[in-house]
Structure formats: structure tokens, C-alpha cells
């Protein structure tokens, strides 16, 4: 049963089980992410998508399992991993501006006790430029739209210049412009050889945006390249066959070049 995990994989999850107060949320996950690919983590509500990300980042305790990033432990590789939490996880009324938030991505690099110097502020500004928000650098974060807030979070991860990005629902509740900007950015990351695992809830766009897919419902249902793993059959196994949407997605899979209006 023990799988062989290549040491170069950006993220190797070996037999991971996570339980909340005795109730198992993730069962025996065994997964190796490919390098330089965009991977969608897909599954119904409560399938443990966010839990998966938080557990590999050691934000919540694992019951069992071994995680390797590029063949080493998380502590050894922290600087190579960028995390984009759900936008709703923070209070956007906090007294900081967009640039301050992005600069937080550099705090580890800056180190204990030191203030954010001009050099780092410029790096943060460059990251904001990459997500198209340079002119909003000085804006208080509650005055940004939901999509702009999401892009600030992305910039905060980008500024780390990581090799693996873990993103929790970056497309949730964003406007069309932000969605395009994020897709653009993901492709940019991929062409720079980086890997991104993205929790994604919109089945319609999986094939268009991502190379690989990880279908999750408390256990790992299927994973692999979109054209192999993202099948109607696998989706039915993931969602329990209750989705009327499945047929639409099946249609979408057969006509992948039709761009939705």
C-alpha cells in the first residue's frame, strides 16, 4: 500500500488523516503534486479542501501522516511556500493599507525586531503592480472591492517569491476582471516553473484554468491531468451523483474550446 514518493515533488502527502474532535475530516490522503503545474482541488462543501491545505501547512494538527515539500519538512521549506488564505478569514476593517498587507509576506525575510524598510516596501509595491493594484497601494483595505482584496492577498503571497503556492478559494466572490487577473497570474507562475494548488469551486472553469485536478471528498477520489481525472464518472463519485451541474460539465468537457460568455 505504501506508495513511493519522488523526492522532487513540490508537495508529497503520505497517508495523511485529519480529525476534528474525533470526527475524521480527511482519510488517508496519499498524493504527489506534479511540478510546474496548476492543480485544482475540487470537491463538495465539507469535503475537507481547506482542511487539506491547513493540515499540510501545520495550521491544524494531523492525526497521522507525513508531509514533504520538495522532499523536506515544512519547517525547512517555509520560505518556498506561499499561502493565500480565504479572503473572509480576516477583518478587512483592520487599520492597514494594501501595501502594508503585502509587506506582511516579507516579514519573515525581514526578520525579528526590524521595521519594514524602503527596499521591502518597493518589493511589496512591485507585487501590487503584478496584480494590477499599484494605484491602490495607499488605500485602506476596507475601501477595496472584494476582488481587489483577493488580489492583495495574492500579492502578499507573490512577494514571497515562493515555488509552491497553496490558495484557498481565490476565485470566491470576485468580479470578472479579478478572475481574469488571477488566471493570468497563475499562468505566469506556471511559465516561471512554479506550482499552484488552488481550491476551486467552479466546475465549469476547471478544464479551462487548470492542468491537473485533485478530486476530494473526505478521501482522495481521483487525481491527475484534467483530461484523465476530471471525468463525469469521477465527479459523480466525488459529489455523490447529486449534481445537476455534472451533465453541463460533461458537455463542457466534450467541447473544451467553447468560451463561456
Amino acid at each position: 500500500m505504501t506508495a513511493i514518493h519522488p523526492s522532487t515533488s513540490p508537495l508529497s502527502i503520505h497517508d495523511m488523516t485529519v480529525a476534528y474532535q474525533g470526527r475524521p475530516v480527511l482519510w488517508d490522503i496519499d498524493y504527489d503534486s506534479p511540478a510546474g503545474k496548476l492543480v485544482a482541488i475540487v470537491g463538495p462543501n465539507g469535503a475537507g479542501k481547506s482542511t487539506l491545505i491547513k493540515a499540510v501547512l501545520e495550521l491544524i494538527p494531523r492525526t497521522d501522516g507525513d508531509i514533504r515539500f520538495f522532499g523536506k519538512t515544512y519547517q525547512q521549506q517555509r520560505s518556498r511556500i506561499g499561502y493565500v488564505p480565504q479572503r473572509t478569514s480576516v477583518d478587512w476593517d483592520f487599520p492597514v493599507n494594501a501595501l502594508d498587507v503585502v509587506a506582511m509576506g516579507l516579514y519573515r525575510q525581514i526578520g525579528w525586531f526590524r521595521p519594514v524598510s524602503k527596499r521591502y516596501r518597493q518589493q511589496a509595491l512591485a507585487a501590487l503592480e503584478r496584480v494590477g493594484l499599484a494605484e491602490f497601494a495607499g488605500r485602506q483595505i476596507s475601501e477595496l472591492s472584494g476582488g481587489q482584496q483577493q488580489r492583495v492577498f495574492l500579492a502578499r503571497a507573490l512577494v514571497q517569491n515562493a515555488d509552491l503556492y497553496l490558495m484557498d478559494e481565490p476565485f470566491a466572490g470576485v468580479d470578472a476582471a479579478t478572475e481574469r487577473a488571477i488566471v493570468e497570474l497563475l499562468r505566469e507562475l506556471r511559465s516561471a516553473g512554479k506550482t499552484a494548488l488552488v481550491v476551486h469551486h467552479d466546475l465549469q472553469t476547471v478544464a479551462e484554468y487548470f492542468d491537473e485536478v485533485l478530486l476530494l471528498n473526505m478521501r482522495l477520489v481521483a487525481s491527475g491531468p484534467v483530461e484523465q481525472a476530471f471525468t463525469t464518472e469521477n465527479l459523480r463519485r466525488t459529489y455523490g451523483g447529486k449534481l445537476a451541474l455534472l451533465d453541463q460539465v460533461g458537455h463542457r468537457m466534450r467541447h473544451p474550446n467553447v468560451i463561456l460568455p
Binding site: 517555509r78 477583518d91 506582511m104
Partner: peptide, 22 residues
Amino acid sequence: FVLFKEFAVLCFDEEYAAALGW
């Protein structure tokens, strides 16, 4: 004064701070 930015990231986004290793 010395831990200003550490406290700031703790107050704003505790989970992210933990992920970064604070």
C-alpha cells in the same frame, strides 16, 4: 516598539502568521 510588525501580523491574520512560521 520592537515587536510592532510581529504583533501587527498576529492581530491581522494569525493563521497566515503561523503559516509563515511566527
